[in-house]
Computed example of a mutant assay.
Amino acid sequence: MSLPSPPRHLIYVDVSIVSGGSLPIPTPTFPRPVINVSFAENVPSTKVQIDTAKDRSGSDNNNIEYSIVQDEGSDKFLLTLNRTASKTLLYLSNKVPLDREEMDRYVLNVSAQDDGIPVRIGYLKVNVLVLDANDNAPTFSSELYELNISESAPMNAFVFQMTASDVDSGPNGSVKYRLIDSYDGQFAIDSNSGDVTVAKSPLNCPSSCLISTNSMRAQTRSCSEFTCMISVEAFDSGQPQMSSRSYLAIYLLAENNHSPVTSFTNVQSNNTLFLSMNSLKDETVISIVKISDDDRGDNGRVTLSLTSGNELSVFRLDPSSISVMYLLKIANVDVERRAKKLIYNLNFLASDFGTPRRWS
């Protein structure tokens, strides 16, 4: 070192001596400190190429080894090298199929270590995103839901909300609904919300003592109840589409809307019956009385009684083997009693067993 003129003050100079006259050895460096990669779930041994590190220390120190620093989930990944005369290729692959529903992202720390003395190590942060596959069907919280509703429920009345969930993401986890059986269009469902509503009124469902589905058997509460067993399907928007089903048992609560109606055979239009009382034998059937009621269950179960006009006990009303029919007979009485009156004004009372009861 030379100076242009003698110094006026003392000058202190620190001198560092580097072995061999070379510069300090740099640390292996990746082109980018952080990268993002993605793997599809449920796919084994997917390979993703990542950039290699550069070592500017010279030819003696360019043999770099790579490894994944141990951390959560790092055991599921593997680094592989493909060295050629002109280039080294570095790949990151998954050792096992990844499950997005178990873990949807990983953070890996990749180290690059040279073989110099002293050893220099550089690091690369790898953000791994697990892409969703449509590997889960929507699921309901129950296989069977049960509820009561009036048979006279009005149009568009809310019945029940069917709800299913799908752990997939995006379109694969977007759930919609449809009815497999609407009972002749009596029920409808909102495809987005799962709300089941009344589409026809009044409702009419078959009577059943036992309901059987694919995976369960449900006992209804009595044989007189009328039940619609609706099958609801939840499906996603993935490819391929996946779906599942649940069942909605709707028990109709009958309402007593109708009074019993009676009709007689062998009578004239004015409800008059002409008989020759002296010639009739005991137990002769003089008329068949039919009763009908458009209600269901106890509301439609009827009985008939002879309330007045038979003070002499000339007539008798017997139930037939058919529950909606009665036999009006001549009672077992003597002819003299029958002949005491020329005209009998008989009054009948038909009633049901509903709540409240109705008569006619």
Rank of each mutant, 00 (worst) to 15 (best):
F315W: 02
A234I: 11
D181A: 07
L275F: 04
N345A: 09
S22Q: 07
S174K: 13
R100S: 09
S244L: 09
I17G: 06
A254G: 06
F226R: 13
Y177F: 09
I149C: 00
T265I: 05
T227R: 11
I17R: 07
K176C: 03
V13L: 11
R56Q: 12
S169D: 10
F140S: 01
S269K: 14
N204M: 13
N271W: 12
R178A: 04
S57Q: 10
K76V: 07
F226T: 09
P4K: 00
N204H: 09
L203C: 02
N127V: 08
A249F: 03
N62C: 14
S308R: 08
V285A: 13
N299S: 01
D99Y: 11
G238N: 03
S279C: 04
M242C: 06
N310V: 02
L328R: 03
I230Y: 00
V333P: 01
T27V: 15
S5A: 15
R100M: 09
A188L: 03
P154V: 04
L3H: 06
D295S: 05
K281N: 12
L252D: 00
L273H: 05
L23D: 09
N192F: 12
F158N: 14
D294F: 09
S2P: 03
V333E: 02
P171I: 10
D318P: 08
D352W: 02
Q239A: 11
S74F: 08
A53H: 01
N62M: 15
V107C: 10
A137M: 13
I121T: 15
S351M: 10
D104V: 02
K87N: 11
H258V: 12
V159K: 03
I180W: 01
V261I: 12
A218W: 09
F187G: 00
N271G: 11
N148E: 10
A199R: 08
F30Q: 03
Q49V: 03
S215E: 15
T272Y: 00
D294W: 05
A164M: 06
G297D: 00
L147F: 02
V96W: 07
N42G: 08
F274Q: 13
V119E: 14
I117D: 13
V333L: 04
S111V: 06
Q241R: 12
F77A: 06
D298T: 12
M1H: 14
E225M: 10
Y145T: 01
G116D: 10
T52L: 05
N42V: 05
L144I: 14
S276P: 04
T139R: 14
K329M: 12
S305C: 04
V128S: 02
D282Y: 09
I343K: 11
Q70G: 12
E65H: 13
P31L: 07
S165D: 13
S222M: 02
L306I: 00
D282T: 14
P6K: 13
A137E: 15
F348V: 01
D166R: 07
D60F: 13
L304H: 01
S207M: 14
P138Y: 06
F140Y: 10
N278Y: 06
S191F: 05
V196I: 06
I180E: 06
D75E: 11
C209H: 10
L317N: 05
R178S: 07
D293R: 08
P138L: 05
I250P: 01
N156P: 04
R120M: 08
V126R: 04
N136G: 04
L108G: 02
G116W: 01
T197M: 05
I250N: 00
K281G: 15
T84A: 02
D334V: 03
E65Y: 14
